[in-house]
């Protein structure tokens, strides 16, 4: 990773990085794993198992097939992304922060996309 920084710095003659707004995301950050997002609703017919393998109980199933992830408890281990790649994926967002505790919790129930904020 240091080599990447060096290359970026030497090529642009400026080491200081830009703040990654929207489309201006730095390609370096593509490999950074910060927090997962829910990409689609859980279509599994089995009772919810996701919550069992999250070490900090960040993922819960509030009612039935709805999936809730509380990013404020997520330590980024990546088990959810590995075991349920249909539901979870790395967000690729390196600037995660919120001014309210509830904003860190997002729920996806059947048919609707992940709803947070």
């Amino acid at each position: 990773m240091l080599a990447d920084w060096l290359r970026s710095g030497l090529s642009s003659r400026r080491v200081t990085t830009t703040y990654p707004y929207g489309k201006e995301a730095n390609p370096i950050h593509r490999n950074w794993r910060t927090v997962p997002v829910i990409v689609s609703a859980c279509k599994s017919t089995m009772p919810c198992r996701c919550g069992d393998f999250c070490p900090t109980q960040a993922i819960t199933c509030p009612d039935g097939f709805a999936v809730q992830i509380d990013v404020g408890s997520c330590i980024g281990c990546g088990r959810c992304v590995n075991l349920c790649p249909q539901v979870f994926a790395w967000s690729g967002d390196v600037t995660v922060a919120a001014s309210g505790r509830r904003r860190l919790i997002s729920v996806a129930d059947g048919g609707e996309m992940a709803r947070g904020i």
């Binding site: 703040y19 990654p20 950074w32 910060t34 927090v35 990013v71 404020g72 997520c74 330590i75 980024g76 390196v94 600037t95 995660v96 922060a97 919120a98 001014s99 309210g100 505790r101 904003r103 860190l104």
Partner: peptide, 30 residues
Amino acid sequence: DTTIPVDAYIPGCPPTPYAIINGILQAVDR
């Protein structure tokens, strides 16, 4: 936040420095 009131939360284990800057800006926004 059980002891003192919190104005911004920065998740991550650990959060990136960008996220920390963002969190401080969020707090200032409030």
